[in-house]
Design a protein around this nucleic acid. Structure first.
Length: 434
RNA sequence: GCAGGGGUGGGUGAGUGGUUAAAACCAGCAGACUGUAAAUCUGCCGCCUGAAAGGCUACGCAGGUUCGAAUCCUGCCCCCUGCACCA
């Protein structure tokens, strides 16, 4: 692929994903091909949209000829990063960390090329060296190279010291483990470049410093190490990115369907759209002006949001995931549902949330619209459902419901098999008759 | 262990005997307007009941005082701070 960018750094910078770097990082990337790494924390079973920034960072590095190394934190996950937190974390249990590590590893594998001829990606788990670490060895080799003064000066530690809750020795040690990771990768994988979110800056620098100190202690020439961090993304209204529809969308289609994932990006605010387009897609300087124009001149068409949603969904969920998401979107927001056959509705809803209702319950008029809405998780209680209907917020097959206590009847079914319940403008449920 | 402070709805937090299902703000939900955006406006936002009325449950837990308690008393649990103990 021919890139309009001279090197990885200039691309990342243009895309707005460079927040800070060690001095000389830019030169290093333009001069030579490096092995670079990003660490991913297994504190949850799935990565979420926020993780796309570092993932894309690696993807772009690989395209520019650098070698990406993904580190899953099976070892550091046992400790917990104090950064960005106001209080001590609860320790995750071992089994949980292992499960999370495994599923995150599987997710990460799809984004990079592990078979590239010159620069195949690598994936390692830091548990493989941290779990067997001997305390005394560690203290002698790593601990000796850090003063407590240095560690106390780090923002992640300092902010916690100023709080009454303090910081445990366990979390205090976290930065040393991450620094050690970098040293390991430097020694055994030739890794000289670390990337991460800007909240990782302190930990990352600890690794850079560690390697420089170790090198300073041994004669000879050494490769220079560098680091770069991405800005943490917020929406233009200042919220943490990904915080809308019930928490950050994950990259796991079983948790966040491709449809929901697609919708998340389609709903990007105009003021964020261009920035996200640069950051998350491969749209380059050649195409960008037309998109910028589109936001200004005909924002209602949402050309930027469409492109954004399309490209990211394709990347994360593949061709079929994207097609499904677009199909559902067209059906739900495009036309009248009742014009579709039951087969079409079912096809459209594949991957969208739904549930079942029993045939005999309908025959007996045993289910009211409100109890069905509750059963489908659309409403939390009968009162909630009643209020919703009063406010005109519940729809059956696209038609507003005005009596919440009406029983569901055969006439409500499309082809006698399915019906679609909707709350507000976006929350749909497909209900199948069993 | 001692002393002090505190535990209220998803969050922050007001409330020290009745008009408090509990101010205010945030978050959330729906509607209007739009473009499945933002902003704005309106309504809702413990559970049950067609609205209201009413009922039920609720202010860390368990008892008690009272016609009546989130509010007073007793015991217990938990959190925070300081001191002590330990080292």
């Amino acid at each position: 692929m021919s890139s309009p960018f001279a090197n990885a750094f200039s691309e990342l910078e243009w895309r707005g994903s460079v927040y800070d770097t060690t001095s000389g990082a830019m030169d290093a990337l333009s001069r030579e091909k490096v092995a670079c790494y990003v660490g991913f924390d297994p504190s949850a079973p799935s990565l979420h949209v926020g993780s796309l920034v570092p993932i894309l960072g690696l993807v772009r590095m690989q395209r520019h000829g650098h070698t990406p190394i993904v580190v899953v934190g099976g070892g550091t996950g046992m400790i917990g990063d104090p950064g960005g937190r106001e209080s001590e974390r609860a320790l995750l249990d071992k089994a949980q960390v292992e499960r999370n590590t495994e599923s995150i590893r599987a997710q990460l594998e799809q984004f990079l090329d592990f078979n590239a001829k010159t620069n195949p990606a690598k994936l390692v788990d830091n548990a493989s060296w941290l779990m067997d670490l001997q305390l005394i060895d560690f203290l002698r080799e790593i601990g000796k190279r850090f003063t407590v003064n240095y560690m106390l000066a780090k923002e992640s530690v300092r902010s916690r010291l100023s709080r009454d809750s303090g910081i445990s020795y366990t979390e205090f040690s976290y930065m040393l483990l991450q620094a050690y990771d970098f040293l390991r990768l430097y020694r055994y994988h030739g890794c000289t470049f670390q990337m991460g979110g800007s909240d990782q800056w302190g930990n990352i620098l600890a690794g850079v410093d560690l390697i420089r100190r170790v090198n300073a202690d041994s004669p000879g020439s050494h490769r220079a190490v560098h680091a770069m961090v991405y800005p943490l993304i917020t929406t233009s209204s200042g919220e943490k990115f990904g915080k809308s529809i019930g928490g950050a969308p994950t990259l796991d289609p079983a948790v966040t369907s491709p449809y929901r994932f697609y919708q998340f990006f389609l709903n990007t605010a105009d003021s964020d759209a261009i920035g996200y387009l640069k950051l998350f897609t491969d749209v380059g300087p050649d195409e960008l002006p037309e998109f910028e124009q589109a936001v200004l001149v005909e924002p209602h068409k949402r050309a930027v949001q469409r492109r954004l949603a399309r490209d990211i969904t394709l990347l994360v969920h593949g061709r079929s995931g994207l097609e499904q998401a677009e199909r559902v979107t067209r059906a739900l927001f495009g036309g009248e549902l009742t014009t579709l056959t039951a087969d079409e509705v079912e096809e459209v809803f594949e991957g969208a949330p739904g549930g079942d209702i029993l045939k005999h319950e309908i025959d007996n008029a045993a289910v009211t619209l409100q109890s069905m809405a509750i059963g489908q998780g659309l409403c939390s209680s009968a009162g909630d459902a009643r209020r919703l209907v009063q406010q005109g917020g519940l729809y059956l097959n696209g038609v507003r419901i005005d009596d919440s206590r009406r029983a569901v009847s055969v006439d409500d079914l499309i082809d006698g098999r399915v019906l679609v319940l909707r709350r507000g403008s976006k929350d749909h449920r497909l209900v199948r008759v069993k």
